[in-house]
């Protein structure tokens, strides 16, 4: 199968969906000639014109509001917030408006809106451009949250997100845009709420998502040499969450390590740990272990930045502690 970059997979999904449905359009900052901060929209302005590739001023609330207003009147916008850190500027529109509008109006207004954004550390861009804020959106009823880790997943999930009648927070990771992976030429979609086992194993389940999948796979490779057979579980979407598949994995391995780049306090990771402890307690041979980022704003200095997020060695250590 051919291999393409993560950002190219995003671009393909967007092109296919815009060709399929004239109601799909793009709105966001620097998405015109510039092609988006990570060039995922390269050439789309020429392809679809300024009516469907709307390049906006730096107005995050108005970008999300524009997405909501167009969505409730029949369009399928993909609103881009350049960094997840900047969603803070649009939280009323995301949390009080978009997330609530369908339910609050008795299903009267449907809001098929995709909010594309990216987060994560590793690029030396410090505390206001490196956060992992998925827990905020995970917490809000009315939002779906997708966090694809591979080119294959990002394409299939983005196409599903665009076709969904609800608001989807589509969170990418800045460190994997250039990563290549197999993506079929023919069309496909990936349903929400269906996890993917990135590596099968029998001794321990590592729950990870987004960029942490790669750290988990690295750890699994190292542990294999020591005779520990690791299963790497990628939920792909945090909301909806494929709980059943996770429980089944734990039933098989009897051990769970949850990995999260976001700091542990109030995190998705701690929520997963609680869920599995409550629902699969009888299958666990040891307490669920969490490997998470430190409780710190992400530092600029590379050594400090790397120290603030989990790595394969941390995951290896955690696995050994419970096995």
């Amino acid at each position: 199968m051919r291999e393409i970059e993560y950002r190219e997979a995003i671009r393909e999904a967007v092109i296919e969906e815009m060709n399929r449905d004239p109601k799909v359009f793009l709105i966001g900052e620097d998405i015109g000639k510039y092609g988006g901060a990570f060039r995922a929209y390269k050439g789309l302005l020429d392809m679809f014109g300024p009516e469907r590739v709307i390049n906006t001023p730096i107005s995050e609330s108005a970008i999300i509001g524009a997405g909501i207003g167009a969505a409730v009147t029949g369009y399928r916008p993909i609103a881009e917030i350049m960094f997840i850190d900047f969603t803070t500027l649009a939280m009323d529109q995301i949390v009080n408006q978009a997330a609530k509008i369908r339910y609050m109006t008795g299903d009267n207004l449907r809001c098929p809106l995709v909010i594309r954004t990216q987060g994560g550390a590793g690029r030396g861009v410090a505390a206001q451009h490196s956060q992992s804020l998925e827990a905020w959106f995970y917490h809000i009823p009315g939002l779906k949250v997708a966090m694809p880790s591979t080119p294959y997943d990002v394409k299939g999930l983005l196409k599903t997100a665009i076709r969904d009648d609800n608001v989807v927070m589509f969170i990418e990771h800045k460190m994997i845009y250039l990563l290549k992976g197999p993506v079929p030429e023919e069309e496909y979609t990936i349903p929400f709420g269906v996890a993917d086992i990135k590596r099968e194993g029998s001794d321990v389940t590592i729950f990870a998502y987004s960029n942490m999948i790669y750290k988990a796979l690295e750890a699994a490779g190292q542990l294999e040499k020591e005779g520990i057979n690791v299963e790497v579980f990628d939920p792909r979407t945090l909301v909806p969450l494929d709980e059943e598949a996770l429980i089944n994995s734990v039933k098989k391995t009897n051990h769970l390590v949850v990995v999260s780049e976001a700091c542990e306090r109030g995190s998705v990771a701690s929520d997963i740990a609680v869920k599995i402890t409550a629902k699969a307690f009888d299958y666990l041979d040891a307490p669920v272990k969490i490997v998470a980022g430190l409780n710190t704003p992400i530092p600029y200095n590379s050594t400090l930045e790397q120290a603030s997020i989990p790595h394969a060695k941390d995951i290896v250590k955690a696995v050994k502690e419970i096995i």
Binding site: A62, G65, A66, I68, G69, V72, Y75, L109
Partner: peptide, 28 residues
């Protein structure tokens, strides 16, 4: 209160909350 058939895109509990939404309805 909102109603698609009436073109009523919603009252709003947040002061100013409807202003960005009007931009999207305008684009539409």
């Amino acid at each position: 209160i909102a109603d698609t058939e009436l073109g009523m895109l919603g009252a709003n509990g947040i002061v100013g909350g409807g202003l960005p939404i009007s931009v999207g309805a305008g684009f539409s």
